[in-house]
Design a protein around this nucleic acid. Structure first.
Lengths: 244, 244
DNA sequence: CAATGTCAAGAGCAGTGCTCACAGTCGTGG
DNA sequence: CCACGACTGTGAGCACTGCTCTTGACATTG
């Protein structure tokens, strides 16, 4: 059963599947995930409501496909943003802005990924690959920054023992040689980034912050500091000055 | 219409209303908001499904009541945590831990508040009061810290013009005399706090961070720095020492 | 050509939010 | 006091949902 050649059947099947997903995406973008119904999708496609079950065993499976698509879309955006040149500080902010931009353009997709999970639903293994794309982008950013000597010391109190262990594990996993303080700060910056976007998108800032993008700019600048990234300083590793 | 004396009707009405909310809370805590159905509530209460509409004009209104309750519960927890003595640095972390504790104990209530909003649903004005309790706690914390002279300078680049304006507006609103850099940092810390909790609760940390509470401790320590709060330094207003 | 596997259709089930006409019950003004 | 009016609970019913199952048509393959 080679996937290279496709019988007419297989082609038709793939096509219908794609059409279903496309229509579902449209409805998701329009009305949001809770309003997405299989029946309305099939209605729009002119097929019987029961036909969709030939392609997706349940509504959750369709949602899973949409989740994968959303992760991929966000991941792609993050990757192209990260491929922009420049110094790490600016690249960090570019990636953050790109992620926020994608979120603002696809609020329902964002909510699907980062919003409250559906209680019964357990994200299947299919999603972990696409899901990790954006985090890998951020990790790569830190690795690059370290290699380029653009990481200054994070002037914080020493990490707790447990946090050190956690950071070391992650460093061994995906952030070779990056200072543990930066790894730990990166985790905080990471959650902070999406916390910021979620607050804006989910209306939590309403009535408090008038210009979310202004706060966002401030946030990603501040969190860059947590990573050890500083703006516009000359190249070369920054030799820590002697003592205080 | 004195609320002092209550006719039997009014008392009964309030009682039934409370029963409905109580049962709804139970189901919310058990199964989550999407699985909460009016019919199952009425079934559990032994009344006709249509009777509930005498008390709540729609399912959304019931959810609003639950949202208010959730906000109040979280607000109360934050307030008692903030009333603990100690220095501002420790109080900040105590409040953060209390908020996270409440979230972990009431995940569905938390998701109801901070999760993806239901697309059609617009939070009514009733919720803004309870909603602001926790933010007021955090604001009060900063005011206290400043009055006690426990705010050190936030050693960041100067705020952007727009961010300064935003911070000044907020300072005039609820944070008298607090340095604008602290106000701006407070916003970042604020979003960061809930971003951290949301990531943990919504499963975004799964497979990446093994001990969320360890990261949380690190996060609230780091974000304390964004506020200008430092641990364990001697009492009294910190007269900026002359030189380094 | 015929057998086989695949597909769409339609009916149907259990559940949902919500509406409405009807039947009681309570509180209050004449 | 009692009768009228406001209030509360009931059950049927509508339109919708996800999902299942049987039936019949189709195309692909041996």
């Amino acid at each position: 059963m080679g996937t290279a050649i496709a019988t007419a059947r297989e082609r038709a099947r793939a096509e219908v599947r794609a059409e279903i997903i496309a229509e579902a995406r449209r409805q998701l973008a329009d009305e949001g995930a809770p309003a997405l119904s299989l029946r309305s999708v099939t209605r729009q496609l002119g097929m019987a409501s029961s036909a969709v079950y030939r392609y997706f065993p349940s509504r959750d499976e369709l949602l899973t496909a949409l989740i994968v698509e959303a992760y991929d879309g966000l991941g792609a955006v993050a990757e192209t943003a990260a491929s922009s040149g420049g110094r790490a500080f600016e690249r960090w902010r570019t990636v953050c802005r790109a992620i926020r931009g994608w979120a603002l353009e696809n609020p329902h997709e964002y909510a699907l990924i980062f919003g409250s999970p559906v209680p019964g639903y357990e994200a299947p293994t299919l999603t972990v690959g696409p899901a990790s794309r954006v985090t890998l982008v951020l990790a790569g950013l830190l690795v690059d920054a370290h290699r380029a000597g653009e990481l200054t010391d994070v002037d914080r109190e020493p990490l707790s023992r447990a946090m050190t262990a956690e950071a070391r594990r992650l460093a061994d996993l995906a952030l070779p040689d990056v200072p543990l303080a930066t790894v730990a700060g990166g985790l905080v910056a990471w959650t902070s980034l999406f916390g910021q976007i979620s607050f804006e998108l989910f209306g939590q800032l309403k009535g408090i912050v008038e210009q979310p993008e202004v706060l966002f700019e401030h946030a990603i600048t501040v969190t860059a500091g947590l990573l050890g990234l500083r703006p516009g300083q000359p190249h070369g590793p920054v030799a820590a000055p002697a003592g205080p």
